[in-house]
Nucleic acid binder design. Structure first.
Ligand SMILES: [Mn+2]
Ligand SMILES: [Mn+2]
Ligand SMILES: [Zn+2]
Ligand SMILES: [Zn+2]
Lengths: 140, 140
DNA sequence: TTATAAATTTGTAATGAGTTCAAATATGAA
DNA sequence: TTCATATTTGAACTCATTACAAATTTATAA
């Protein structure tokens, strides 16, 4: 399962140009874009694309476990082309979301205190390395 | 620092009836209500309360570290009268958010890969114990 | 091919949580 | 009381997301 077309077909999703384009964007950038960011980017290549199609496609991907929605910022959903679960760091200053590869003992659990677990989310919030360095420079 | 009035005063927040009422609700129920749920509840006691006051107060509490906003459901913010950081379990079926007291090694960290951490969030998503039992009964 | 059905995309309108803002009200000091 | 300041209120607004029906594309069968 190398290429994106295969991933969609394997999930029973017809790989239309729109859907492929959205998935390709998620795969290439691997930032954690909003629906608006995705729409704006795709629009430059497929000028007729509809915002609704972006939302429809993302929902389809999510329902099939291909994409994970991140509810971190509180203002809009960020989308992650997830291979395996991982932690995130959200910078309150620049809004960037970083992947954190840390091995947390609770990321494998499938049951906790009788509750059946389907998804695990761990994230931190603060000021990212980049923004910290900028602050330092500004003070010197 | 036992009672709610003291908590507010200690934070430099004037303990008005509205603010105290909101905090009292968060403290008594300890579910993780939405702003709408809080508004509806307070309204029965203070019929003149405004939705804006609820949002204003919650923002004030958040800015002073008295309350933590939870971005978990994706549709609305849930509010937690946080004493110490802890994990959560969100039930996709009934919408309930449970506290999970598990000791995760990453909940104490203040810096990761150069990023300065201000908040730590860990939560799981799935079907809660209660809803699982209901399902079982329905099948027998 | 042609006809027809099903799937997909599109655009517009609606939804709803949260915010803005200025007027009204309450509080507190002089 | 008078005046300034803090708080509350309600209406209007924003904006991400959803609903929905029409238009278009794609698949299937005759
Ligand atoms: Mn990620
Ligand atoms: Mn909690
Ligand atoms: Zn940053
Ligand atoms: Zn449940």
């Amino acid at each position: 399962m190398k290429n994106l077309k295969d991933i969609l077909e394997y999930a029973g999703i017809k790989p239309t140009i729109e859907r492929l384009s959205i998935l390709r964007y998620l795969d290439s950038k691997h930032d954690h874009p909003t629906a608006a960011m995705i729409f704006n980017e795709i629009e430059t290549k497929i000028p007729t694309i509809s915002k609704t199609t972006v939302y429809n496609s993302l929902k389809l991907f999510i329902d099939n476990g291909i994409v994970t929605p991140l509810y971190i910022t509180g203002s809009e959903v960020r989308y992650d082309f997830a291979t395996k679960p991982h932690h995130h760091f959200f910078c309150e200053k620049c809004g960037k979301i970083y992947d954190l590869i840390i091995d947390c003992p609770y990321m494998k659990k499938t049951k906790i205190q009788g509750h059946q677990i389907k998804q695990r989310h761990g994230y931190f919030r603060g000021i990212c390395k980049n923004c910290l360095e900028k602050e330092e420079k500004a003070q010197s």
